[in-house]
Design a protein around this nucleic acid. Sequence first.
DNA 1: GTCTATAACTAGATAGAC
DNA 2: GTCTATCTAGTTATAGAC
Lengths: 200, 200
Amino acid sequence: MAKAKAKAASDRLGSSERIRLAALGLFKARGYHGTSVRDLAEALGIEPASLYHHFPSKQAILVDLFDRTMDIMQDRLHQAIAGGATPAAQLRNFVRFHVLFHIECQDEAFVSHSELRSLTAPNHRRMIGKRDRYEKAIRELLAAGVRAGEFEIADVRLTSIAILMMCSGVSDWFTRRGRLKPEKVADSYADMVLRLVRAR
Amino acid sequence: MAKAKAKAASDRLGSSERIRLAALGLFKARGYHGTSVRDLAEALGIEPASLYHHFPSKQAILVDLFDRTMDIMQDRLHQAIAGGATPAAQLRNFVRFHVLFHIECQDEAFVSHSELRSLTAPNHRRMIGKRDRYEKAIRELLAAGVRAGEFEIADVRLTSIAILMMCSGVSDWFTRRGRLKPEKVADSYADMVLRLVRAR
DNA sequence: GTCTATAACTAGATAGAC
DNA sequence: GTCTATCTAGTTATAGAC
C-alpha cells in the first residue's frame, strides 16, 4: 500500500515535517477550509491540542507550506535557466524544470496555487509578491529570446501567462500510476512550448 | 461602482437567480467551505433561514451552479465546432469559444474547476463524467486533424490536456480592467494553439 | 417568501496535568 | 511533546409564526 509506505517514511521525519506532510495531503484533497484541525490531528494519530506545540495556528501551517514551496521554486528556477546557453535552451530548461517540479512536488505546487485565497491579507500579499517575481523571470526570458531573434512572440506578457498555466496544470492531472513518466511529460511540454514561441 | 451596478442588475432577477449569483461570487473569492450560509445570506440582505426556501442545502446551490455551467459548456462546444469546415478551423473555433466562455462566464468556470473537491461523492462522480465527455470531444478533434494530415501531434491525449489547461487558465487571471479585450485574448490563444499542433 | 428562535453539532484555540 | 478537558464562537439546518 502507498499509504503504509508513506507512513513508514514519515516515521523517520521530525514532528513538524510529519505535520506539514499530513496537512499537505488534506489541504490538497479537501482544501484548507475543508480540513479541520481535528482532521489533521486524526491523520497524524495525535490529539488536536498537540498540534499547537509545533505551530501556533492552522494558518501558520499553511503559510509555512507556501514559504517553503515558493522559495524552493525561485531558487531552482535560476539554477535551471543558468544551465542554458541560448534563450531557446534556457526556455527548454525552464519548462522541463517547471513541469518536473509540478510533478515531484505535486501537492506543494497544487496547494500553493489553490489555497492562495485562504491566506490572510498580509500573507496573501507576501505570496503574490513571490509569485510575481517568478513570473517576471519568465517574461524576461521570453523577451530576451525575442530580442535575440530566436522567438516569434506577438505578446510576451500573454504568452508567458499562457505557458505558465499550461505547465502548472500538470499538478492538476498528473498521476504516478499514469501512462507517462515524468521525464517524458517534461520533454513533451518543452517541445510544445518551443513550437508555441516558434523557436528556431 | 461595479458593486452597485451588480446590485441593480440583480434586482431584476428572480430570488433563486440572485442567490446563485451571490454564491458564485463568494465561492470564487473564499471557496465553498470558506463561505458560510450566514455569509451568503448577509450578501443577499436576508436571514440564513430564508435561503432554505429556495435551496434545500448549501451543497444543492453548488451542484446547481455546476450543472448549469457544465451543460451550457457542452451545448456551446458542439455549436462552436460545427461551424468549422476543416479540423484546423474547428480547433480555432473551439479555442476561441473555450477562451471566451472562460472570460464571459469567468466565475462559473472558475468555481466549476476549483470546487470539484467540495462536491459530495455522487455529485463529484456526475460532474467528472460531464468533464470527461467534454475532454473527449477535444481529443477527437485533435485526432481527426492528425488523420487529415493537418496537425502534427506526438501525443494527442497529452496535447489535449495541455491545451485545455492553458485555455481554462484564462478564468484565473483575466480581468475586465486589464490591457486586453476578450476578443484579442481569444484570437491570440487560437494562434498559440495552432502553432502548438503545427497546423498547416 | 421572509422572519425569529433554536437545535445539534463542529470550529479553532487554550490551560494546565503528566 | 502529548494528553484531557474545556472555552467561545461559529456551523448547517429546522420549526413554526407572520
